[in-house]
């Protein structure tokens, strides 16, 4: 990552991700039309209650007996909240709200959920990471483990750490989640990407998070 992109991420006025976080803050405190509960009604001040939360997601969800990522956790919470707006995956609102929650963990080391029930899912995520896919027959590991630091058509191949999501990507000219980024790579190797929210994605996220620990959370990060 170039020095100018790093500088852009560090300065909160230059970082366009902060615009999304600002929108997320408004959504956090917004009551549904006609009254009712906002996020803040239960969770209070996010700067206190959400501190460090994003650093340990995906976590184990008791209701579904599966790992759940932050965006799906917000969606599940919204589903229980009367009058709450519907926020589909990758919608501007959901990305903004998760950026705001993620911002509260900025600087906190990534801390994978130690719950032993997550182990089989994490192992499946690792298998997905190492399995060659697509017409190009490449696995995630083929680039992000074996050739990290090298170049792909002039672009630097990163180590593939997920500690800055949701982030502002200059190529997108906008915000996106980790799943959007994973779909990018899958399309790049000419594989069929699963839909947003697919179990494969959550398992991959889970493995990537344990692989990245203890890197500090950078949400909302800026990437080229």
């Amino acid at each position: 990552m170039s020095a100018s992109t790093q500088a852009m991420q560090r300065d909160d006025v230059q970082n366009p991700g902060m615009l999304a976080a600002g929108q997320g803050e408004a959504l956090w405190n917004a009551q549904p039309p006609g009254g009712g509960q906002s996020c803040a009604s239960c969770h209070g001040d996010a700067t206190a209650s959400m501190k460090g939360v994003a650093a340990r997601y995906p976590a184990f969800d008791e209701a579904t007996r599966r790992p759940i990522d932050l965006q799906d956790r917000i969606r599940a919470c919204n589903a229980r909240r009367p009058g709450a707006p519907d926020m589909p995956h990758e919608s501007e609102e959901l990305v903004a709200l998760s950026a705001y929650v993620g911002l509260q963990s900025r600087g906190t080391p990534t801390a994978p959920d130690p719950d032993p029930r997550l182990a089989p899912f994490r192992a499946r995520g690792q298998a997905l990471f190492e399995r060659p896919i697509g017409q190009l027959n490449l696995s995630c590991a083929a680039c992000h483990d074996a050739r990290a630091g090298g170049r792909l058509a002039g672009a630097l191949i990163p180590q593939g750490h997920p500690n800055g999501y949701p982030l502002y990507r200059l190529e997108w000219q906008g915000m996106g989640s980790l799943q959007r980024r994973l779909r990018n790579c899958m399309t790049g190797v000419r594989a069929e990407a699963p839909p947003f929210g697919a179990p494969d994605f959550v398992e991959l996220e889970l493995y990537l998070q344990s692989r990245a620990a203890p890197l500090a959370v950078e949400t909302p990060a800026v990437r080229p």
Partner: peptide, 25 residues
């Protein structure tokens, strides 16, 4: 919804150069 971020000094000394930084969605 348009949102903007502005960073400007609240106070400044007379004659001093101030840097104004703006970002708009």
């Amino acid at each position: 919804m348009a949102r903007a971020l502005v960073n400007a000094p609240k106070t400044a000394k007379a004659g001093e150069m101030m840097e104004i930084k703006t970002l708009i969605s």
